[in-house]
Design a protein around this nucleic acid. Sequence first.
DNA 1: TATAGTACTTTCCTTTTTGATAGTGACTTT
DNA 2: AAAGTCACTATCAAAAAGGAAAGTACTATA
Lengths: 116, 116
Amino acid sequence: MKERSHEECTKAIIPVRDALDILSGKWKLPIIISLSFGNKRFGQMSKQIPGITDKMLSKELRDLEINQLIKRTVYDSVPVVVEYSMTPYGKTLEKLIDELQNWGLKHRKRIIEKSK
Amino acid sequence: MKERSHEECTKAIIPVRDALDILSGKWKLPIIISLSFGNKRFGQMSKQIPGITDKMLSKELRDLEINQLIKRTVYDSVPVVVEYSMTPYGKTLEKLIDELQNWGLKHRKRIIEKSK
DNA sequence: TATAGTACTTTCCTTTTTGATAGTGACTTT
DNA sequence: AAAGTCACTATCAAAAAGGAAAGTACTATA
């Protein structure tokens, strides 16, 4: 009985670690959320995501692209325009993000209540 | 129209950041999952969570306790026994963790497929 | 007296992450 | 000709996170 629950528990931890490997850090989820509201260009995201620096944005976009959660499209205009968008795979994060938002919202309310 | 979606987007990012503040790091979610399988003692968790050191376990347990996601109970036995358990508040993370597991599982399958 | 169990804590160190600031190069607008 | 747009890149520094190994305090048992 104990053995079983121990195994099950380890089994439950592994996929969460896998997910965290891809999504961890301060900026990846905010970037994904920003893109979930529509395709964006570098400069737009840089303004829209509070506090992010260009360096972090550029690095995190690269990581997300490597993991195929977002797509980078270069338009051959003048000046060159680069558009980022979610891939179908990136969109599979939707439910997870919903839950995070939900929980975060409730948590914020709780904190505000307590500080009264 | 653009203004609206910009605002909405920022509003969506804030709660996610709130949630990440509490849950970020390599170990907090694994610890929570471990406890969701039943109350545990320090030594048990130390063995059950692959790769964690005593130092990290102790630190993360303290953080989680401060944020009232878990509870620490000291039994006055000899030698002293300390039991950790989820609080009702901690249990509100259940759905979020389910989604993380789900996604992580699918992600792992995808990676394995691709490496073939 | 020595060993072991329980639950940590401490120290020292390395790695990773994040931040501030400035610069690049092609081009356009004033 | 100067300043601005666009999408980055480079450099240096600071802060945060994480890891290995040993130590602490208590008690019980051999």
